[in-house]
Amino acid sequence: MIEVIRQYEFLQNAFLTGMIIGIIAPLLGAFIVVRRLSLIADALSHVTLAGIAAGLYFNQTFAFLSWLNPLYSGMVFSVVGSLFLERLRTVYKHYQELAIPIILSGGIGIGAIFISLADGFNTDLFSYLFGSVSAVSRNDLWAICLISIIVLVVIFLLYKELFLLSFDEEHAKASGIPAKSIHFIFIILVALVIAASMRIVGILLVSALMTLPVAAAMRMAKGFKQTIVYSVLFGEVAVIIGLVSAFYLDLAPGGTIVVSSILILLLVISAKKFIKVG
């Protein structure tokens, strides 16, 4: 396998990107899950789909926009979607979950319009939906590296504030930390990570890479730091197994990565049961 990776640049790109998102997606995912925001990741990924479709449509239709990488338009949509989401959550204070179907269906709706307008990027679209081993370019890789560095630095610097905000939002606000701004930064990070992950896992399955490893980690971790460590570990294992099998079996990596994550989850749950009984 390693020989093969050395030979092909597209495989290097795919594996490096995979390893990177295997770290940042579960890392942010740990905060998303404990804050019960899992569905927000889903909503934002569908908005990203709209951005991707818009990007594909524009660079196909308008010659002067042919330079536009759909990754960037996806990122822009994702960030804008996150801002709308926050706005809606304050508008419907007592029905905060209502913001999720609004944003989610809005994303798919806009996406569907652009897809039918363009009417000709089926193979491309498939790789955006379910990920691809061959679609990551060097430029994508650099963009994803940059996003990851931003995410890692921000999480490192704001770790204790994010922890307090997740564990006890009221106490966080009462103790005078800038809860609103920190939450805002956090949601933007989520939007960026979704955009970064979608090349490999695909838009429809991004949120799985953010939640499934965390779900497994929470079964066995003591404390939040351990939850993060296990989440990243499980995320990495799932990405590697998923990418290798996707390459050899010619499958969409989104599918193989998610199925690997689910297998890990089942393994952890049953191992825990076994240990308890034994």
């Binding site: 922890f163 564990f167 980690a217 404390g223």
Partner: peptide, 14 residues
């Protein structure tokens, strides 16, 4: 919430 006693008390120093 997966937080240890230590982590919860530490959050008081945020």
């Amino acid at each position: 919430f997966p937080a240890t006693v230590y982590e919860v008390v530490a959050s008081g120093l945020t």
